[in-house]
Design a protein around this nucleic acid. Structure first.
Lengths: 213, 213
DNA sequence: CCTACCGATCGGTAGG
DNA sequence: CCTACCGATCGGTAGG
């Protein structure tokens, strides 16, 4: 019975977090009222404060609950790859797949940066930076294939290109561009691979078979 | 005298817009009150409404006043270039230079997308899309040098990579990464050029002289 | 977990 | 361009 009631409280807390996420990403932090959260969660305003000390602590919970690195990083760390190209293609695939599930996460990051002045972002990314740096080093496992670009820059270009794909994909939802194909991700990856690999070691020519595996 | 008074009214309006810009990008839309704007502009609250019908119309004015494409696009359109590589390097230089002056503009875009639900963005970009598409076509002026990538994708990768540079540059202000060099932009451009140009036509090898012109 | 309430602050306006 | 004010809504809490 004690277990059941605790479980029910957890459910309520999870429901509050879930609806708060949807409201925050659609209206922003200051544009979302605790009354809206309460109504969407099906409880009274005061009920929220049995689970969260303040609106800000509710936002922090949402931020941690919905950031994609928790699941994305292990997925990439576990990849087995025979060469740099293989690794990049697999990592890009994982990256896009996880971020597509969490597309609205970028809105959360912006809210955190602008509306909450990045007060909590440091503790959020601190855990992940060393693991990302370690990932960047794995490129060195395949010597002789790479242009002489510093590892942090190579990693940053990778993250940046894919991030910009997701962002422009969101932005272009409302503005279809004539001549924009479906498999833009694969082409971005091809551009990136041509950009970082020396010519001898890539399966070159952007054939449709290669960009459409 | 009529001229003087009109000029003074314009000055006040410009000052309101200026301080509103700073407040919006630092606190968000709903996080900024008209009273804060009034105080920062040195006038009473009611005075704002002699210049702007509402808070939202003030935001729209800020959005138009501070978006970088007004000056960036003509600068790139006027570029003279002998080859694709030259064009890309000059365009990237212009792009970064203009966006560095208007770095906080991204915050405005996010505010517009999240807090104001992208209500005004359509009319803002509508004027620029055809000109950007036209720019993408200029790559075709140098035939035989390009990988067979659709023009919109090539343009999108260019904008995306540079945009992601500016964004990560902002984000990494607070988290210096060991081993991250100063001339990341040049390296990004090199990666991009290797990515879109066929091998024969590029001044290859990323020598320091080339990445540090 | 709800009801009823607090002081504070919001965007906006009338009238001068 | 300011003073003084409007109704509405905010985050949060006491008490049950």
């Amino acid at each position: 019975m004690a277990d059941l009631s605790r479980s029910h409280a957890d459910q309520t807390r999870a429901e509050i977090t879930r609806v708060a996420y949807r409201l925050f990403i659609n209206q922003g932090y200051h544009g979302t009222s605790m009354r809206q959260v309460a109504e969407a969660a099906g409880i009274a305003l005061g009920g929220i404060y049995n689970h969260f000390a303040s609106k800000e602590s509710l936002f922090v919970e949402v931020l941690y609950e919905y950031h994609p690195l928790t699941r994305l990083l292990p997925a990439i760390e576990d990849l087995q790859a025979a060469c740099a190209e293989d690794f990049v293609r697999q990592a890009a695939h994982q990256f896009i797949e996880h971020l597509n599930e969490r597309k609205e996460f970028f809105s959360l990051i912006f809210i955190e940066m602008v509306e909450l002045k990045a007060a909590h972002i440091e503790s959020l990314v601190a855990d992940f930076v060393p693991r990302i740096v370690a990932l960047a080093q794995r490129f060195e496992d395949w010597p002789g294939e790479l242009h002489p670009i510093p590892a942090p820059v190579r990693m940053r270009a990778f993250l940046g290109l894919l991030m910009s794909y997701v962002l422009t994909d969101m932005a272009l939802q409302n503005f279809p561009i004539p001549g924009m194909p479906d498999n833009v991700v694969d082409m971005f990856v091809d551009i990136y691979l041509h950009g970082i690999l020396t010519r001898g070691n890539q399966h070159d020519k952007l054939s449709p078979d290669l960009t459409h595996p």
